[in-house]
Amino acid sequence: MSAAPSVLYDAPGPRALRRARVLSVVSVLVLATLLVLAGLRLNETGQFEPERWSPLFWPGDESFASVWGQLRIGITNTLLAAALAIVFSLVLGVALTTARLLLGRYARLPLVLVAEVLRGAPVVILIFFAARVLPQFGVDLSQLWYLVIGLTAYNFVVIGEILRAGVAALPSGQREAGLAIGLTPRQTVLQIQMPQAYRLMLPALISQLVVIVKDTSLAALILTGPLELLNAGKRIERFLDNPLQTYLLIALIYILINSLLGLLATYVERRLSRSGGGGARVDQDRAVTMANLGANATGGGVGGHAT
């Protein structure tokens, strides 16, 4: 047994090892019992009947093709919405942070106010009202765009916060050197500070992409039409009448997409810390901690995917 090195324990001796082994057996038994009980209940309610599973998992089933056709549309739209939202959020987030860095204390107040309000609001409300308010002003878009707008309204502020934490973590010499060689403050922010902050916070930005992918599923609650993955799941479930199996499959797809993104974030993080990011050397842990603290002011949670 290779116990994770922990602050709580010394390397276990023979007695502790024996105790841990006994506890392992007991906990496996308890978990197995729970699993069997759950399985029995599933069996009782007929969840293991093949016709509940085959349209989703067996290519020979007559509904398989149409089910996966729906799922393919759903996956495409989920990825499309997430990609559009992250691109818009990045552009607006850079603009927001640049403006906050360049404007004077009073001139940036309205920006700060808007940012705080958007960050303090639940995303689901922003999507809901993008779909309800915009048509009243004569903006008539497809449902996907309302989802993208709602997601962007929240996430550009969060990404702005991430970038701001990245800029704050840079050594002050970076900015001073930029100004000293005659760049304007705006050039310094855009050409010296931002690119480094962006590289520094890339792992946090990828984590935020996971949040966005997860949040696309909110569309299933408030928007209609053949839209994203969970919406596709709802339609399939209505047709096949097997909520457990369908939502299990949908959850697996989300987990697959997001695990891949998580791996990408870890990979990028490792690469950046090895190469030193190419720019100024800064303490990345400190920057991420600061981003978390900043997020704490009104909620959001940069490090955790807790939106």
Binding site: V210, K214, D215, S217, L218, A220, L221, L230, G233, P243, Y247, I250, A251, Y254, I255, N258, S259, G262, G304, H305
Partner: peptide, 13 residues
């Protein structure tokens, strides 16, 4: 598992 799947799915379950 929970971190990588949306809250909406959890609520559907």
């Amino acid at each position: 598992v929970v971190r990588n799947s949306p809250l909406t799915i959890m609520l559907f379950f």
